[in-house]
Amino acid sequence: EDGINLEEIREFAKNFKIRRLSLGLTQTQVGQALTATEGPAYSQSAICRFEKLDITPKSAQKLKPVLEKWLNEAELRNQEGQQNLMEFVG
Rank of each mutant, 00 (worst) to 15 (best):
G81M: 04
A46Y: 06
R10Q: 09
Y42W: 08
I4T: 07
M86H: 10
A33P: 04
P65V: 11
A74Q: 06
G90C: 11
E75M: 00
K17Q: 10
S45R: 11
G31H: 07
I18D: 13
E8G: 08
E73N: 07
R10W: 06
L6K: 09
K62E: 15
V66K: 10
Q44L: 07
F16N: 00
S45N: 12
N72P: 07
I18T: 14
N15D: 14
C48F: 06
R19E: 13
Y42D: 02
L71I: 15
Q82K: 13
I18V: 10
E73L: 05
F16Y: 05
L21N: 13
E11H: 06
S59G: 11
N72V: 10
S59E: 15
L34M: 08
Q27E: 15
F50W: 02
I55N: 01
R19A: 03
F88I: 09
E51C: 00
E51D: 00
I18L: 14
A41G: 14
T37R: 14
N5R: 07
A46D: 15
N5L: 07
N84Y: 06
S43A: 07
T35V: 10
G3C: 14
K62I: 15
E11F: 06
S22L: 10
R49W: 00
I55Q: 07
L67P: 08
E7V: 04
A33V: 08
L23G: 03
E1C: 00
N72R: 11
P57D: 10
E73S: 05
A33K: 05
A33D: 09
L6F: 15
E38Q: 12
S22E: 12
Q61Y: 08
K14D: 08
N5G: 06
K69R: 13
R77T: 05
V30S: 01
L76I: 14
Q61P: 05
Q29I: 00
N72G: 11
E80M: 10
F16W: 04
E11V: 05
A46C: 08
E75S: 03
I47K: 00
G24R: 01
S59I: 04
Q27G: 01
S59H: 15
Y42P: 03
E68H: 02
Q44P: 15
M86F: 09
Q29L: 03
R49K: 15
V89G: 13
P40N: 09
K17R: 14
E73I: 08
G3W: 14
S59D: 14
K52F: 01
K69P: 05
T28A: 15
E51V: 03
S22Y: 05
R10T: 09
R49Y: 09
K14E: 08
L85N: 06
L71Y: 11
T26F: 00
Q61M: 14
P57R: 07
A41R: 10
T28I: 05
T37N: 07
T26R: 00
I18M: 15
L53T: 04
V89N: 11
Q79Y: 00
G90Y: 13
L21P: 01
L25K: 06
T35R: 10
K17G: 03
P65H: 08
V89F: 11
L76D: 07
I4R: 03
L6Q: 12
A13M: 01
L34Q: 03
S45A: 12
V89W: 03
W70F: 09
A33T: 07
G31R: 03
G90N: 13
I18N: 11
T37I: 07
L67E: 01
T26H: 00
R49T: 02
I55D: 09
F50R: 03
A13S: 05
L67W: 01
L34T: 01
F16T: 06
Q27T: 15
A13F: 04
I55M: 15
P40H: 10
A74E: 08
N15T: 09
E51P: 01
Q29F: 00
T37C: 09
N15H: 11
T37M: 09
K64C: 05
N5T: 12
